[in-house]
Simulated assay, not measured.
Amino acid sequence: MKPPVLLTRDKFRESVFARDNHLCVLCGAPADDAHHIIERRLFQAPQEKGGYFVDNGASVCEPCHLRCEQTVVSCEEVRDACGIKRIVLPEHLYADQPYTKWGDPILANGQRIRGELFFDESVQKVLKQGKVLDLYTDLIRFPRTYHLPWSPGMNDDDKMMQSLAAFEGEEVVITTKWDGRNTTIYPDGRLHARSPDGRPHHSQAMVKSEAARFSFDIPPGWRVCGEDLYAKHSIAYDNLPSFFLGFQIWNERNECLSWDDTLEWFELLEINPVDVIWRGTFDEKTIRALPLPNPEGWEGYVLRLARSFSYGDYPRAVGKYVRADHNKLGVVHNWRTAKVTPNQLAEKS
């Protein structure tokens, strides 16, 4: 299948109407609008800007358009009504994940995860009109982290940052990337790996115990993200400061705190943070030349803006470097069924 073609706004409307015979695909009335099945603001990369793809459009009348915006009519129903076989998504979203019009992931049980536009005033208004806000869980999927252009350890399903413009002139922080399990912890002690609907694993018992120590001090609506390092993945550790190392904190507005505020909260919560390798004004040449201080112990490093940023800005505000040989280190591919090999903490002096 050929890749979708990005059109101009006018050509998008014209092409969608022509395909649908200028009729609303949902009720058959004369069409008033060319509806974006997935919200155009979610398409941010230059090659997809605005989401003006024919397969992301549907001809609708005004009443049906409102129902689509309210997400009372699902994206799947709209595509079926149009006869669309190709699902067009912004490149930072996951192809195997169903989404609402606003980019909110939909779980297998029908619950929705608050996406990057959830707190937008206009989105809140239309979702309230549709009476669907009670479908949302307060658990939030950890966003996809793109590889930096010079990262050699990409897999087939990984994505690379196409532009570093968001870093230009900004202070950035580079932290160690550890080989563990990405974990998000909430004020009530609930936790999950990258996705809230991921299956729990018995190796999470240690991080659950760790979360119980500080979770009640996390402000309401906030969440702490870090690396669960109890179980060995590809790299064995024998000198860990703790089995959980924090790297991000998100507030009730789904904004990632600045690095300085993050460290302040980690100190209050008594969470060990990941190590800082470098901090300064972004300079690609300098960063590319950085040696890994401990190349045998780290998976790589993470580059982030030092200031705070929104969930929607994450794909442009954070990038990762993964060492070339990381995926050749004897990783246990069926680690869920394999025997857990614990990493080791540093001896207390």
Rank of each mutant, 00 (worst) to 15 (best):
P90M: 09
F17N: 00
G280I: 02
G297W: 02
G169N: 04
K128S: 14
R9Q: 14
P3L: 13
D313T: 12
T183V: 10
D104T: 04
G319I: 06
L329V: 11
D261N: 13
R323I: 13
G319S: 02
Q204L: 10
V123A: 10
G115A: 04
D325V: 07
D33F: 10
G83V: 03
R223I: 05
R144T: 12
T176W: 07
S203P: 01
S203M: 11
R194L: 08
G28S: 03
D20K: 00
L133Y: 01
L164W: 05
V126T: 10
K125L: 12
L268H: 15
M1W: 08
N155Q: 15
A317C: 07
L240E: 05
R288Y: 11
V318F: 06
R199H: 12
K131R: 14
R19Q: 00
K159C: 06
W250D: 07
G83W: 04
V331F: 15
D157V: 12
P219V: 15
V132A: 07
G83P: 11
C82M: 06
S74R: 01
H201S: 13
Y230P: 07
D134Y: 07
W102T: 05
G300K: 09
L89S: 08
V172E: 09
E210W: 09
A34M: 07
S215I: 08
D313W: 06
I218M: 05
E296D: 15
K285R: 13
I277D: 04
K85T: 14
R213M: 04
A324W: 08
K11E: 15
H333L: 15
Q111A: 10
L7Y: 11
N334I: 00
L240Q: 05
